[in-house]
Design a protein around this nucleic acid. Structure first.
Length: 140
DNA sequence: GCCAACGTTGGC
DNA sequence: GCCAACGTTGGC
């Protein structure tokens, strides 16, 4: 299983909005960046991801699961853009904030720290465990 | 609201 | 194929 990080501005598409979609989940649409698209193409069913609120909140607030493989983005006719489907799995007991992440030397190589503009990012297994620990996530 | 960083576009 | 100009993102 691989791990990822999905970024969204909460006033456009928030964690609460994804949770409201339930088990069916939602398209992660609107991505217009090749690197982010390629990351989505590399995803497998059951992969896990962090849901990160950018601009406002600035924190990892929940865990999502990839529940649909990459397919054409329904918000454009341009065949270049694809997206996966994700659904909300669990809330972070405590949101892990960007300052918390930046202050943790174990996370200094995270894409979030070094290329904050990439909207769909890979996360290593070690980074995944560390952020789960910081967020008070007992399982995962 | 500002500004730095990055990606994309388009002229040459 | 290079590079300058521009637009967008996102942290502060």
């Amino acid at each position: 299983m691989n791990f990822w990080l999905f970024k969204s501005e909460p006033f456009k598409f928030s964690w609460e909005m994804l949770k409201a979609k339930g088990a069916a989940g939602a398209e992660w649409d609107g991505v217009r960046n090749y690197q982010a698209r390629n990351n989505m193409r590399a995803m497998a069913l059951g992969d896990r991801g962090f849901f990160y609120h950018s601009n406002e909140g600035l924190a990892v607030v929940g865990i999502v699961e990839v529940c649909g493989l990459a397919h054409p983005d329904s918000t454009t006719d341009d065949p270049r853009w694809e997206c996966v489907d994700v659904r909300a799995l669990e809330d972070m007991p405590q949101p892990v904030t960007l300052p918390d992440i930046k202050a943790n030397p174990a996370l200094s190589a995270m894409v979030l720290v070094n290329n904050s503009r990439l909207s769909v990012q890979p996360v290593t297994a070690a980074e995944w465990r560390e952020i789960c620990r910081m967020g008070g996530m007992t399982g995962a």
